[in-house]
């Protein structure tokens, strides 16, 4: 881990480690192939739309675009395969081997450890969603504090994961329909075609609206989030989206005295009592006093709402 310090300080600003180079390259490949696949596939789904021929001709029209689509799809599937391998490698190296070394390995303990990995959805995500709803419907003025990966990020991860499996598998079969129908009946291709295109539409809309809003267009990050390029997230966004994790990392890295209050949403002006919400109850007195100080500040200018 020494290669990627969890907190990097550049010009006095703290940046928090999120994604290593391997993951970032995987993401670039994924993003690139998704864009190409959607653009070269949608004109076919909506072939009678007025824009379809124009967009399709950008990929060489009906003589070339299907090839572009298939090659890009193949690249995406290779990436998917690599990602599965990557997951296996990480689990083996960081969880299986250590457990074996410590002698604590049992199938049950191993599975429990896997289920506690930060990317696996858990009860906190459900609580956060409920708390976010309360916030969005004005029942409270405090946004939930996110962990290392928020429910939005888990959704953004698992939705394409499932999508890639469905779309990829159906795509490969439709591509090699003559081969596969030696075994499966021809009617199945009809269903696969529906699954392929409808799931793709869902994935496309999901990514280009929801994902892009969260990582680029929301007023907190606009005009562009850079974490997918640099791998590091700035302190402000860290405090806004991953406050629980932020506090944890700050403490573990010895910056306990520099912990700032949550940022954004209802937090900034009246970020009242982080200490009382903190289940651990071990927030240092320094932090509390700092929080109180910012609370004072907030009261001065925060009466607008």
């Amino acid at each position: 881990m020494a290669k990627y310090p969890r907190i990097k300080i550049i010009n006095g600003e703290k940046y928090f480690f999120r994604f290593d180079m391997d993951l970032r390259i995987q993401h670039i490949f994924l993003a690139g192939t998704v864009v190409i696949l959607v653009l070269s596939g949608m004109p076919l789904k909506f072939s009678d739309a007025s824009w379809a021929p124009y967009l399709y001709s950008m990929f060489g029209g009906i003589t070339m675009a299907p090839t572009v689509h298939k090659v890009t799809g193949a690249i995406m599937l290779l990436l998917f395969g690599y990602h599965l391998f990557w997951i296996a490698k990480v689990i083996y190296k960081n969880h299986y081997l250590p457990m074996k070394r410590e002698g604590t390995y049992s199938t049950k303990a191993f599975l429990m450890r896997i289920l506690k990995l930060p990317m696996v959805p858990n009860k906190k995500d459900l609580r956060d969603i409920i708390d976010l709803m309360k916030y969005l419907f004005y029942f409270t003025n405090v946004r939930p504090n996110g962990d290392e990966y928020t429910w939005k990020e888990k959704f953004d991860y698992w939705a394409p994961f499932w999508g890639m499996f469905i779309i990829g598998a159906s795509g490969v079969i439709i591509w090699n329909k003559e081969l596969f129908t030696q075994i499966i009946p021809g009617e199945v291709i009809n269903f696969l075609l529906i699954a392929h295109s409808d799931e793709a539409l869902l994935a496309g809309l999901f990514l280009f609206i929801w994902h892009w809003y969260n990582v680029h267009f929301s007023t907190s990050v606009f005009p562009m989030g850079t974490v997918f390029l640099t791998g590091y997230l700035n302190e402000e966004l860290m405090r806004e989206e991953h406050y629980d994790y932020y506090v944890k990392v700050m403490k573990e890295e010895g910056y306990e005295k520099e912990i700032l209050p949550p940022h954004g949403g209802g937090h900034a002006p009246s970020c009242s009592d982080y200490s009382s919400k903190d289940d651990d109850g071990d927030t240092s007195s320094d932090t509390v006093s700092e929080l109180e100080a910012s609370d004072e500040l907030a009261k001065e200018g925060g009466t607008a709402a």
Binding site: L132, Y135, L136, F137, Y138, F139, T140, N141, A159, D198, L201, L202, L205, F206, I209, W210, Y213, S218, T219, G264, G265, G266, A268, P269, S270, G302, A304, A305
Partner: peptide, 25 residues
């Protein structure tokens, strides 16, 4: 598709709106 996108769009819309009144409750 509807079940996934509509709630998310709602959250997105409410989130935009919430940003105008971050403290209201």
């Amino acid at each position: 598709t509807g079940g996934t996108l509509l709630p998310l769009m709602l959250i997105l819309f409410l989130d935009l709106l919430r940003r105008l009144f971050p403290n209201a409750t």
